[in-house]
């Protein structure tokens, strides 16, 4: 293991977050088994108090997971000089098999925690807590992801040794290499550009439709998720090169560096926020016919749609700014 303050911070943060979540899951089991809102018994009152604890814990879990996601990438970045051939996080994460899995699990757990908070927020607006069991089942579903994330991240960080030879963004994200990513990059750039410039307005338009008409939540939700994947792909395949001003440099991480004004942070944050709000619109949709929620859900969906529209637009604006004001002239390629 490498004794690095960033590594200690990540391990400590993850361990704390996951143990809080495990405790919440334990409370969740008790709530699923014993919840009876009609009862005035002391046990029921106590369970009701516990729901506040779990809500609080989950808000912190989401916050910490988000911070931890970025700290993870940043740490991988700072560690890159230790590995031969690594120039940024792309290389460090490739040092052992756990790096990229940990990253994906971190993103997934952020999305899941965000979705749980959307469901919780919705449920807390209804006087009879109609989703209480469902949301604690969801919590039980999320917990293994965080445990996996913590273990895989620990596997990655503890397995780091200086001087390991790795390959970095130059080869991982290039069209010559034989990786999944390079297969993707080998697709004509026009295709990914077309996909992005189609899916962005469609997502925003559907968001507006949900916002104005309170209809089409499922479609919006599915499209939002597809757009989430397309956005990440677009960022790697063609948006990033305008920021790097290098036609062959497709790195998802270098864009987080100070050389590029940390522009990657707002972009990734916008992608995550729009994914959570888009998916959130759909995840609460099945419950809109419940009596106590029928007035609540359309309002929440409206708000989520608005958040999604704003964050998608922010992403497109930043990307557009990068493309328009780049010194990279694509005409030459």
């Amino acid at each position: 293991m490498i004794f690095h303050p960033g590594i200690l911070a990540l391990l400590l943060g993850s361990a704390l977050t996951t143990s809080m979540l495990c405790y919440s899951a334990y409370e969740g089991v008790r709530i699923i088994r014993n919840w009876d809102i009609r009862s005035g018994s002391e046990r029921q009152l106590e369970l009701e108090r516990r729901t506040y604890l779990v809500s609080t814990v989950m808000s912190y879990v989401l916050g910490f997971q988000l911070l931890s996601l970025f700290l993870f990438i940043y740490t991988a970045d700072t560690l890159s000089p230790l590995f031969i051939g690594a120039m940024c996080a792309a290389g460090s994460l490739n040092v052992n098999g756990f790096g990229y899995s940990a990253l994906v699990l971190k993103i997934v757990s952020c999305l899941l925690a965000g979705l749980w908070l959307v469901v919780n927020f919705t449920d807390n607006r209804a006087y009879d807590y109609p989703l209480i069991r469902k949301k604690y089942w969801l919590l039980l579903f999320i917990t293994p992801f965080l445990i996996a994330e913590t273990s895989v991240q620990a596997g990655y960080l503890l397995g780091l040794r200086p001087n390991i030879i790795t390959s970095c963004c130059g080869t991982l994200f290039s069209t010559d290499a034989k990786t999944v990513m390079s297969e993707f990059l080998a697709l004509p750039r026009l295709l990914s550009e077309a996909a992005f410039f189609l899916s962005a307005p469609i997502t925003v338009a559907l968001g507006l439709y949900v916002y104005l008409r309170s209809k089409g939540a499922y479609l919006f939700s599915i499209v939002s998720f597809i757009h989430f994947l397309i956005s990440i792909g677009a960022l790697i395949s063609f948006i990033s090169i305008y920021f790097y001003e290098l036609p062959t440099h497709h790195c998802p991480f270098c864009i987080l560096h100070p050389e590029y004004g940390y522009v990657g942070y707002p972009m990734y944050l916008a992608i995550l926020v729009s994914a959570v709000s888009g998916l959130g619109t759909g995840i609460i949709n099945p419950f809109r016919n419940i009596a106590s929620l029928c007035n609540v859900i359309p309002r929440i969906q409206k708000r989520l749609a608005l958040i999604s529209i704003l964050s998608n637009s922010a992403f497109v604006l930043i990307a557009g700014y990068g493309i328009l004001f780049s010194n990279l002239s694509m005409a030459a390629y």
Binding site: P5, A9, L10, L12, G13, L67, T78
Partner: peptide, 11 residues
């Protein structure tokens, strides 16, 4: 650097 601040925050 921001990184130091973030690390300290976590710790």
């Amino acid at each position: 650097s921001v990184y130091h601040i973030a690390t300290l925050f976590f710790l």
